[in-house]
């Protein structure tokens, strides 16, 4: 039920509807819950974008991993 999938916003239409790309599948989703622009990434759940993602945040996780390893080596 809480499965959510990242997708890139390709197009924004009238009435808070967006066309997103999951990688190999394009679909219309509702954008009522987020402010996004074309080219940004969102997390899609039950046909709605529920949160905006950024490339920086994705990189932050990698940094967190790096810190954990560094701590382990101490």
């Amino acid at each position: 039920m809480c499965i959510a999938v990242p997708a890139e916003v390709l197009e924004i239409k009238e009435g808070k509807i967006g066309v997103v790309d999951y990688g190999d599948l394009r679909q219309e989703v509702r954008l009522d819950l987020v402010d996004v622009e074309v080219g940004e990434f969102v997390l899609v759940h039950v046909g709605f974008a529920i949160q905006k993602l950024s490339r920086e945040e994705a990189l932050e996780t990698r940094e967190l991993f790096r810190q954990v390893y560094a701590a382990m080596e101490e």
């Binding site: 039920m1 809480c2 509702r30 009522d32 039950v46 709605f48 529920i50």
Partner: peptide
Amino acid sequence: SVGFETTAPTVAATILQ
């Protein structure tokens, strides 16, 4: 309308329309 807090806002947005 089943689900936790991931799902409830999608229903709320729909009711408001």
